[in-house]
């Protein structure tokens, strides 16, 4: 059982790590948002799964607290993360940051 917990935590840390690398390597703000906000959300899902499984295996009275709080943290993260990414991307485009290496930019012609 402990191997499954390690595997879940490892997958989570791997995706968070790749998100951090993408933050450095990608060329502009939009592609960086892709790597940074969403790989970390996905990694956090796996880390929370690992916590839940750990609490399930080593069950005690206090496990309720840890499980509930990590689930609530995950729900808050899933709701706020796309909203934040959207807000940053829209603010960046409105203040004149154009996507680098862009194939197409349909949003540029929109009057605002």
């Amino acid at each position: 059982m402990i191997e499954v917990i390690y595997a879940l935590a490892g997958i989570g840390i791997l995706f968070n790590f790749l998100g951090g690398i993408g933050l450095v390597r990608f060329p502009d703000v939009y592609t960086r948002l892709h790597a940074e906000t969403k790989c970390t959300t996905f990694g956090s899902i796996f880390i929370v799964l690992a916590i839940l499984l750990y609490e399930l295996v080593n069950w005690s009275t206090n496990s309720w607290v840890m499980s509930f709080h990590s689930i609530i943290a995950l729900i808050a993260l899933i709701i706020t993360n796309p909203a934040g990414a959207h807000a940053i991307a829209r603010a960046a485009h409105r203040s004149g940051v154009h996507p680098k290496e862009a194939v197409v930019d349909s949003y540029e012609k929109v009057k605002r």
Binding site: Y30, H34, K38, T41, I78, P82, H86, R90
Partner: peptide, 10 residues
């Protein structure tokens, strides 16, 4: 937005 590779701007 949650699926990586796509990000809603407006």
């Amino acid at each position: 937005t949650l699926t990586p590779g796509t990000l809603t701007v407006d």
